[in-house]
Design a protein around this nucleic acid. Structure first.
Lengths: 313, 313
DNA sequence: CATTCCAACTGAACCGGTTCAGTTACCACG
DNA sequence: CGTGGTAACTGAACCGGTTCAGTTGGAATG
């Protein structure tokens, strides 16, 4: 059990506590020679900083927070965040910060969570995901004076850095691909439109179709779940003039869509082309392999974390 | 910005800092009357405990840790942990603890992580997942004197509480079901056998077959990924006497297995029955719906967290 | 040679709690 | 009425860092 404090290091190195603190934090006011000696002694003694003591006196927590408001049953099919967290962690670990994660069930609980993280000073900043239109978290974070980065840019004004993914190009390429295959009747199944990125993908789909003078009126708002994808598919395929291709806003809905189409006796891909979005591992092992848009949540996590730490410093 | 300390509360309530501390923590040495007054004043002033100060003096972190060693690309298809985290969080939130999550790439980094969490006192205890045979983390945690609970019971001796899932019954029922359908040649695709629960599922499959006097020699060790599931499926189906049913150790491999079988021109479920394990949302929206074993990671998370907090207290 | 200046370092206060050794005041008991 | 005991409360030390106001010694300056 390690109990080496800077007082021990100071004693062993023959300097004062203050000097040790300066030396260990690379601050001026210490000669190179002394600094090296202190560093060596600290290493030998196996000194580890006590983050609580550090936080208490410097009021920096050396941790960042992520709060997710999710219905537990929807979490079960979410493949994005594991990899995203891994990316965040990769950066935080290097720069010796911790990740404080909260998963809550309601938006109100999320608000509460930010309040607590901020007033208790548990984190130095947060990463905000799942933006919605006129997101209440933006003014809240301003009020709390809590540094933040957002995943994608919110609709309105926002003083926070945004790490964006290029949804438009991905969807455009997909539509392009389908048009090339000869499709004229291309539908879309979106995520909840309250989420900004669902809106972005929907608009990208519209624009891409418009560019080819094709109608963009066949689409359904869904919810990113397998259940939602399946029922949207049923609805689309039971129309008078059913689409010959469906662009889903994520892979889970697309995979459920394939199954539903088959259940309805429609051959995929002969009678119906289906595309996803996310590049989940599973999509490549579907039959036929799902055409999808590669996203890189791991990289996104890295970028978001790096940006946030830069802001905090 | 909240900056109310117990000193402020003490002043406002006309008592000493110490008395306030006793009052707020429900400790003896304070009259009911004074306690109520202090509580009321603290409430009015909007006092929030500073967890760093508390941790520093009491050396309790009010946080628990989970470290996952995962290849980032494998994470992408993992549906277990999101829900698990949510369950953990649900309990931690209630009892005002935080979750410190680390996702690392190698087992060594994981060991390092536990060392850091312990020596830096960032957490009061940890939840250990993905047990392997003679897991090095068990002696490590003993050495670090860090309270822990394990998900499932490790093979060897372990002083830690284990939260177990009943894998045996699930697999047995699945095999039972297949035998009832008339299958005689039932194969198994397992996870990495280094992981104890893979071994458990394999053994359960063996035992269930033995109970019906059926041979249990057709199985392949895989890795829980779609790629692994697909290639194991190819291998099994290209045998001289291919199985008529395959019991996969998780849903992702099973879903990839369905696709692969189809790609090989084998009709599912007419020529081949496929079962999974996990009850991922997607499995119910496959065509045909995947027969699978329901697991409840959310509940498991709740149980693990509750147990750990009980131990810590 | 006296003065100035600065880098290097010390000592102590401080962050916001917990905890423990004392101090009071009140009551019971012989 | 003196003694003892105890519940209620105080004051100060302490946890392990950071930070700031001083102190010191030596080089540069005039």
């Amino acid at each position: 059990m390690n109990k080496v404090t800077i007082a021990d290091v100071a004693l062993a190195a023959g300097v004062s506590k203050g000097a040790v603190s300066y030396a260990l934090n690379g601050k001026p006011g210490i000669s190179e020679e002394t600094r090296d000696r202190v560093l060596k002694v600290a290493e030998e003694l196996g000194w580890r900083p006590n983050p609580h003591a550090r936080s208490l006196s410097s009021s920096r927590a050396s941790a960042v927070g992520i709060i997710l408001a999710r219905d537990p049953k929807h979490l079960h099919s979410d493949t994005f965040f594991n990899a995203f967290f891994a990316g965040v962690e990769a950066v935080l670990g290097q720069r010796s910060h911790a990740l404080v994660l909260q998963i809550v069930e309601t938006a109100e609980a999320e608000i509460d969570g930010y309040r607590r993280l901020a007033t208790e000073r548990r984190v130095d900043g947060v990463i905000v995901a799942d933006l919605v239109a006129s997101d209440p978290r933006i003014p809240l974070l301003i009020e709390l004076n809590l540094p933040a980065v957002t995943l994608n840019r919110p609709k309105g004004e926002s003083p926070f850095a945004a790490i964006c993914s290029d949804e438009v190009t991905g969807i455009s390429k997909i539509v392009e691909h389908l048009v090339q295959l000869g499709h004229q009747n291309i539908a879309h199944v979106s995520g909840p439109l309250a989420m900004t990125h669902s809106g972005t993908r929907l608009q990208a789909w519209r624009d891409a179709l418009a560019a080819h003078a094709l109608p963009a009126d066949t689409w359904i708002e869904s919810d990113f779940t397998a259940a939602g994808g399946a029922s949207a598919t049923s609805e689309l395929l039971s129309q008078d003039d059913p689409p010959t291709a469906i662009v889903y806003a994520n892979d889970v809905m697309a995979i459920a869509g394939i199954a539903r189409a088959r259940a309805l006796g429609i051959s995929v891909p002969r009678d119906l082309s289906i595309t996803g979005y996310d590049d989940s591992e599973l999509s490549q092992y579907m039959y036929p392999p799902l055409t999808t848009v590669a996203t890189d949540p791991y990289l996104w996590g890295r970028k978001a974390a790096a940006k946030l730490l830069d802001i905090i410093d």
